[in-house]
Design a protein around this nucleic acid. Structure first.
Lengths: 141, 141
DNA sequence: CAATAATTTAGAAGCTTTCTAAGTAAGGTT
DNA sequence: AACCTTACTTAGAAAGCTTCTAAATTATTG
């Protein structure tokens, strides 16, 4: 349960997403989908790619994160109003956000349950439900 | 339920929040707490204040929103990673976010229920739980 | 009314994200 | 391979929101 992913083939993954298998995208796919599920921001992922020796423009990371999201490989999570967070786990689940560290972690599907989602008007649909449990030190800060 | 607030006295409100009753803060308090519950961004509130004839620096609006939040008069809602949203309704409730319009609306307390909130380690506490139901057109865009 | 402390302000600065236009790489065809 | 076409990457600029700074103003206290 949620321990990891099968080893993936970045080229096949990119092919399925109808994206050309460039060196940059292969690197990012490897970093994102290579092992366990992850939560990343563009900046973090960019730093990792550079650290791995594959320098690329930050704009490329942004472009790729958006393409992956559009392809259903990533899901965006609205946690803070400063930066965008992306989650490789696209199945239905919710999050804990640690306000000290800025770290995001999954709540296993089924642990947290929601009932009473509102009706939406005809022609509209629920796109996503974000539940973020924000935790911090009990003593204020 | 949730139709409005009693008319407030901005000076008393500011006094209770241990904030000096400046003209700017009185104006903002009036706009925020004068009638029904509201969701605002700094930019919106600033525009309203200017439209009401009380020009003030955008920085003042930010400062005041933060002070009000710290005083428990406002609550921040994490919905989009571009701007901060503040809600005058600080009681426990959740939100619907319309992705077309960028508008935020309340879900009445009790309509949407959550169970199974996670345990947090000793010394930590749950600061806030944000539930945002994101809606949009059923046909993609 | 003077003295002190808090607040406001304009503008600059900071950050994250997006845009632009030019260069580069990939895929398909011969 | 060589070629053509289209997709992708890139650096840098630009945009958008928020915070900072230092000086001027305003509120409070004695």
């Amino acid at each position: 349960m949620n321990v990891g992913l099968a080893d993936i083939d970045p080229i096949a993954l990119l092919h399925d997403a109808e994206m050309r298998p460039t060196r940059q995208r292969q690197t990012l796919a490897q970093l994102l989908f290579g092992r366990v599920h992850r939560h990343v921001t563009a900046e973090e992922l960019h730093r990792e790619a550079c650290a791995a020796g594959i320098k690329m423009a930050l704009a490329t990371v942004y472009n790729t994160l958006h393409r992956f999201t559009r392809a259903g490989l990533l899901r965006e999570v609205a946690v803070d109003s400063g930066r965008r967070h992306f989650d490789t786990n696209v199945s239905y689940h919710h999050h804990v956000f640690d306000e000290r560290t800025g770290e995001l972690s999954d709540i296993d599907e089924g642990d947290l349950q929601i009932s009473g989602l509102p009706e939406v008007p005809d022609g509209m649909e629920i796109r996503r439900v974000d539940v973020v449990v924000r935790v911090g030190f009990a003593d204020g800060r």
